[in-house]
């Protein structure tokens, strides 16, 4: 059998990965369509309030366990998430196809204790806190609206839009 050229394998795998992302993102939030926040609401049994701040749609979701989630939408696409609460939300649901990318990268990190910040495949995710108080955010920097900055995602003041 002919050995397949390396570049050929790479291109083929890249296409396959892209296909998977597109397929899954129809059902998931980060990177998904604006309407996907409704699915998150159902899955997380949350209360949902929509608002618009500086031209950016923010879906404000609160779970029964008291976790506040903010989903940021521009150009019809969820480009960022921020959350805060006593526990962690269902990130498998909220991150959609990016969940497994994060998991793969997290396994490669050296052991350490404390908050973390991981950047992989265009995804940036950070989690901080400890039992009974967590914060976190996840975003796709390449999907940021013009002049938007990551620090606008958080709950801190004055820059954060999530308060």
């Amino acid at each position: 059998m002919f050995p397949m050229p390396r570049t050929g394998i790479k291109r083929w795998m890249f296409l396959l990965a892209g296909l998977c992302l597109c397929q899954v993102s129809a059902h998931a939030s980060l990177g998904g369509a604006a309407a996907s926040v409704r699915l998150d609401q159902q899955q997380l049994h949350g209360r949902l309030v929509m608002q618009t701040v500086q031209g950016i749609q923010i879906a404000r979701l609160t779970t029964p366990a008291g976790i506040e989630i903010r989903e940021y939408i521009a150009a019809g696409k969820v480009f960022g998430l921020a959350w805060r609460g006593p526990w962690l939300p269902n990130l498998r649901q909220l991150l959609g196809p990016y969940f497994s990318l994060w998991q793969a990268q997290a396994k490669k990190l050296p052991p350490r204790r404390g908050p973390f910040l991981i950047e992989t495949h265009g995804l940036t995710i950070s989690i901080a806190g400890r039992p009974r108080s967590f914060t976190g955010m996840a975003y796709l920097r390449s999907d940021f609206p013009r002049s938007f900055q990551a620090r606008q995602l958080g709950f801190h003041s004055p820059a954060g839009m999530a308060r």
Partner: peptide, 17 residues
Amino acid sequence: GTKYSNSYIDSGSNGYF
């Protein structure tokens, strides 16, 4: 000038994060 209201002291974290 920015206030980070979810800050904490934690001997179980390694360093300053």
